[in-house]
């Protein structure tokens, strides 16, 4: 009987932790009943596996504890399943997510199963430790430990967003002949007069100014820029059909200043919404670069003083 409580409490707390994290990725990966079912079930299995370990060790059954290792293999599978799914729908997206974003999402899904497992393990451990005190104490301690660990992990897993590493400002769309230009950076050659007019009349643009040299290196990553284009097109909507490729949003970086610019013809024509949408784009774990940490960068360059920013470049 003294094993039932820790396992039950651990499994429940772990599954709840997974549910908590599932609600959070609403935007990153639109959820649907099937997706919820899959990830809640996997979360439950992960939590149960974690919860079984402490009572098993107490009873001297070390083999059962080694099942945790087996779980790791299982969850690696989750990552490849997510990657596969997203890759398969990639060519149905008008503005693709890009491989870096897909990799990032897949990684998050794998990691969250480990979190469910850890929460289950912690809850079960606390519950096992006080199981002598009776059922209520045992269940209470497990729930408290699970809650604590769950909240701590929830906090720790919150990644950074573009708004944390850069300043986002609205900008004007200009045409230099056929060249679509935002803040001095040429984005693309728009040949058709009608397309140019649509950009001028209905288009919006942003400048993303990195706060330091690390942010600049991160924003230089093509995957990160594609993620920004995809997210903005998802949040604001986009006036784009498959045969109108000139309206595909592209984020380009000014090599002199590190500023990233992007123009889009959104359905929701609201500058403030556009800035908010860009700020809310997650910084992809796989694109983060920290060249300044090498110690080779002098402080003035590292803090990205706008000294070089005066040069306007095409």
């Amino acid at each position: 009987m003294e094993t039932v409580t820790p396992v039950a409490v651990g499994a429940i707390m772990g599954t709840l932790a997974r549910l908590l994290l599932l609600r959070r990725d609403y935007r990153q990966f639109p959820s649907y009943p099937q997706g919820y079912t899959i990830h809640l079930s996997l979360g439950f299995i992960a939590a149960a596996l974690g919860a079984i370990a402490p009572p098993a060790i107490i009873q001297g059954d070390l083999a059962a504890a080694s099942f945790l290792a087996l779980a790791a293999t299982q969850f690696r599978e989750v990552r490849s399943v997510e990657r596969e799914t997203l890759r398969n729908v990639e060519n149905t997206e008008l503005v693709p997510r890009g491989t870096a974003y897909i990799e990032g999402i897949a990684r998050v899904f794998e990691a969250r199963n480990y979190l469910a497992m850890l929460t289950g393990l912690a809850a079960s451990m606390a519950s096992t430790a006080v199981s002598e005190q009776g059922l209520l104490w045992s269940a209470g301690a497990g729930a408290a430990a699970g809650l604590l660990i769950g909240i701590a992990l929830y906090r720790a897993m919150g990644g950074r967003r573009v708004g944390d590493i850069a300043v986002v400002k609205p900008a004007a769309i200009e045409f230099d002949g056929p060249l679509l230009t935002v803040a001095g950076v040429t984005i693309m050659n728009v040949g058709l007069d009608s397309a140019r007019r649509r950009y001028m009349d209905e288009g919006l643009a942003v400048v993303i100014e990195p706060k330091d040299a690390n942010a600049r290196a991160t924003l230089a990553n093509l995957g990160q820029r594609q993620a920004i284009a995809h997210e903005v097109a998802t949040v604001l909507g986009i006036k784009l059909e498959v045969d109108e490729r000139e309206f595909t949003p592209i984020a380009r970086q000014n090599p002199d200043t590190g500023e990233v610019v992007m123009a889009i013809v959104p359905l929701l024509n609201d500058e403030r919404a556009l800035v908010r949408a860009v700020e809310y784009v997650p910084v992809l774990e796989g694109t983060v670069r920290k060249p300044v940490q090498s110690g080779l960068w002098p402080p003035d360059l590292a803090s990205l003083e706008r000294a070089t920013g005066q040069v306007s470049r095409r």
Binding site: P178, N189, V190
Partner: peptide, 8 residues
């Protein structure tokens, strides 16, 4: 399903 570019 391609883009028009103006070579000026």
């Amino acid at each position: 399903q391609a883009v028009v570019h103006d070579l000026q």
